[in-house]
Amino acid sequence: MSEKTLTRMDLSEAVFREVGLSRNESADLVESVLNHVSDALVRGEQVKLSSFGTFSVRDKNARVGRNPKTGQEAPIPPRRVLTFRPSHLMKERVAEGNKS
């Protein structure tokens, strides 16, 4: 598998190519997309992006965890976690594209 990692810069560059706005504005809009998705999740909303996937927030109860190194018990407070469920289309494309 290739080690290449895309960042915000690559996404901005794609928007710049596709839409023809300035590089600066493209970068701002990519940031805006990510911020609005984050804000909705922080409000506790689910974010459903057809053909991409669904981000949902789940509440986890408090439980007693254990430091795996020392074996010592440590309380884990209740918390909210984010899960991403890829769409069928994304799963299919990722499975097809990475066949060995």
């Binding site: 290449k4 990692t5 895309l6 996404l11 991409f52």
Partner: peptide
């Protein structure tokens, strides 16, 4: 713009790349 952002992520993953 919105479509490009998410398509770009899917395309990268389909090539075995990471998106950070």
């Amino acid at each position: 713009i919105v479509n490009t952002v998410f398509d770009e992520i899917t395309n990268a993953l389909a090539k075995g790349e990471r998106v950070e």
